[in-house]
């Protein structure tokens, strides 16, 4: 009897132990993807584990169905989110919320911000840049303001006839502001001269982990990866339909792949660039990469004339294996936590 009990206990211990050859980090340090799941009238923030299981943490209402722009703080615990307030004019129709994922707390920091402008955290996590749009005599004027986590506000930049102004990244050297005007796109740190990026509109501006490089998508003359760094500006045409750059913590740049076509041009880029593999008929757009080697990608299936007919999230492991994730609603990866 005693022998059978010991055998059963031993089997139980074996079942609970990590599989041989696959060391697992402690549970609270396992990679988890912070995601926003929007379902039409509410938005839920929570964690997605690498097996695709979702753990909701905080839910907020979005009765207008406008959608929510959110950004994960450097501490990987707080979020800044803009949420529509019905009845307000365009460009000032949202409130800025500070959300504590661990405690489930929500605090309103500021009203009258532009719903469509994504909040951007400063590198030290003390401030958030958001956009406001003011009515002017002829059209509108964009303004970027910084909001501290205690709700203090200071203006950073105001539009000077540009078509649009965007907070594009906030490394230690200062907030990068993208300005788009009829002449093209320019980027600069607040109070410093701008650099011309393109004759067209660029998108997906992202700053490298060391703050030295700026990557962006440029579709002005076909899909191309733009890189602005110590050596100046480079433009690398890509074979696939999309660019969508995202940095890995080690400084490698990820871009969307092109099914069945080699990206030989990437070898000439001034930083290491890797394209995310895609299967026929789909393209995986890198969104956020974690330190443990996990990547969250938005995968789109393309129909006739290149239209997006389906999309989902792929969690791609360090070994390249994929975990497709489909949840009820629109899923947006915001960053990795718990590593």
């Amino acid at each position: 009897m005693l022998a059978r009990l010991l055998l059963a206990f031993g089997l139980l211990l074996t079942a609970c132990a990590p599989a041989a050859g696959a060391p697992q980090p402690p549970r609270d340090e396992a990679p988890r993807l912070v995601v926003l799941v929007w379902n039409g009238s509410t938005a839920t923030f929570g964690h997605l584990d690498v097996a695709g299981r979702f753990s909701p943490r905080v839910t907020i209402d979005d009765p207008a169905g406008m959608g929510i722009r959110a950004a994960l703080a450097p501490d990987r615990q707080h979020l800044a989110a803009t949420v529509a307030r019905p009845g307000r004019p365009a460009g000032r129709e949202a409130g800025l919320l500070l959300i504590d994922l661990a405690r489930g707390e929500i605090r309103r920091l500021l009203d009258d911000v532009d719903l469509r402008g994504r909040p951007v955290w400063s590198a030290d996590g003390n401030e958030i840049a958001v956009r406001r749009v003011h009515a002017a005599e002829h059209g509108t004027v964009d303004e970027i303001v910084a909001v501290t986590v205690t709700g203090d506000v200071r203006p950073l930049a105001r539009g000077d006839g540009a078509l649009g102004m965007y907070a594009a990244g906030w490394p230690a050297e200062g907030l990068h502001i993208l300005r788009i005007a009829a002449e093209g796109s320019r980027l600069g740190v607040v109070d410093s001269p701008d650099v011309v990026l393109s004759a067209g509109a660029v998108r997906d501006v992202s700053v490298s982990p060391d703050g030295r490089w700026i990557a962006f998508s440029d579709y002005s003359y076909g899909p191309a990866l733009g890189l602005l760094g110590p050596g100046g500006l480079t433009r690398t045409p890509l074979a696939g339909p999309f660019v969508h750059p995202a940095w890995r913590p080690d400084g490698t740049l990820l871009v969307a792949g092109a099914p069945g076509r080699a990206e030989s041009a990437l070898a000439a880029a001034p930083v290491p660039v890797v394209s995310v593999p895609s299967s026929p008929g789909t393209v995986s757009l890198p969104v956020t990469a974690g330190r443990a080697g996990w990547l969250a990608a938005r995968t789109v299936r393309l129909g006739a004339a290149g239209a997006v007919v389906d999309e989902w999230i792929d969690l791609i492991g360090p070994d390249g294996r994929r975990q497709p994730v489909r949840l009820p609603g629109v899923v947006e990866p915001l960053g990795w936590a718990g590593e």
Partner: peptide, 28 residues
Amino acid sequence: AWGWRNNPNNPDFPWPRPTYTGSQPVAN
């Protein structure tokens, strides 16, 4: 509004984006 705000190349809108069906965020 005939202006940049509704330009399909405005980086405020995700790209690429699927056809709007009534079930996605309007702000996209």
